[in-house]
């Protein structure tokens, strides 16, 4: 055996495992999407059926809302937190650790905790806000169609902005001190340092992190499913949850597979556009 094929033998076990865990499910999903319950080939029937469902377009828009809204605030808050945590102040180490907490808390635990905190009658948020006179009467945060999505976005932002903060902080710490000093000598104030030194220098980090957040956002089920299961009235039904419910609540695996295939395609397009648009802008720092 020559060198190359010996190497192949060594990676074979890993490849087999990978094929079983990734390639097979993907291929099988593709197969499911064009067959019926009995396994007979039905062409694109599943696709037209799932596209015809009233929930589908709504879930699509909900997904865009949820992912878009989450990412904007995750990146803004995360970056702001990173810049703050990069400053010198007493107790910085402790604050850095505390900031990381939401990301460490398991999703299901966080979701349950927040669900109780936002509870209309027993939640601490309504209790405090009515007590302080901010709102005259309790709000049904999770049952009111106009508040439920913003609340879920807020919880998702709370959960993931520490991740952004840590990544951006690592990027900020790699900026040579000379650059700040040069900027200071050149007459920059703090905000000018932020916009002309820090942000351009961590741009590549932010781009990479945002991409991760897009992917995670499109796949996120835990928080929403644990809190609202997509309700009320499908107001928080996002496509991953629709797929989950189609498959495991309606046991319609074929339509769920068809929806998965389409969702996969859309997600792929979004990610490719994003990478093309942002990752290759000239003037990038090397």
């Amino acid at each position: 055996m020559d060198r190359n094929s010996t190497g192949l033998v060594f990676v074979l076990p890993a490849l087999i495992v990978l094929a079983m865990l990734v390639a097979y499910p993907v291929a099988y999903t593709g197969l499911l999407s064009v067959t019926d319950r009995q396994g007979a080939f039905v062409g694109l029937d599943n696709f037209s059926a799932v596209l015809g469902a009233r929930a589908t377009p709504q879930a699509f828009w909900n997904t865009l809302w949820f992912v878009g809204g989450s990412i904007v605030f995750q990146v803004v808050f995360g970056t702001a937190a990173a810049i703050l945590l990069n400053q010198n102040f007493i107790g910085r180490g402790i604050v850095r650790s505390i900031t990381l907490l939401p990301w460490v808390v398991p999703g299901i635990v966080a979701a349950t905790t927040w669900a109780w905190m936002f509870h209309t009658e027993f939640g601490i948020i309504n209790y405090m806000m009515t007590g302080a006179g901010v709102i005259p009467e309790p709000i049904g945060w999770l049952t009111n169609g106009s508040t439920v999505m913003p609340v879920l976005i807020a919880i998702n932002v709370w959960k993931l902005f520490p991740f952004v903060a840590i990544m951006v902080l690592a990027g900020l710490q790699s900026i040579p001190n000379d650059l700040y000093e040069a900027a200071r000598v050149d007459g920059a104030n703090f905000w000018q340092e932020v916009f002309h030194i820090m942000l351009p220098q961590v741009r590549s980090v932010i781009v990479a992190v945002t991409l991760l957040l897009v992917i995670w956002g499109l796949n996120s089920i835990t928080i929403i499913y644990a809190i609202t299961r997509g309700g009320p009235a499908n107001r928080t039904l996002i496509t991953p949850i629709q797929i989950f419910r189609l498959a495991f609540e309606s046991t319609n695996f074929n339509q769920a597979a068809a929806l998965s295939v389409m969702f996969f395609a859309v997600a792929l397009v979004i990610v490719i556009i994003y990478i093309k648009a942002l990752a290759s802008t000239p003037g990038e720092v090397k």
């Binding site: 000379d178 650059l179 000093e181 040069a182 000598v185 920059a188 030194i197 003037g283 720092v285």
Partner: peptide, 22 residues
């Protein structure tokens, strides 16, 4: 006084050029 109020210019050992600017 802050550096910018001193009307000085400095050349650093590392040059400290802003990498993202022409």
């Amino acid at each position: 006084l802050a550096p910018k109020e001193r009307d000085i210019a400095m050349v650093f050992q590392s040059y400290a050029l802003y990498p993202h600017m022409t």
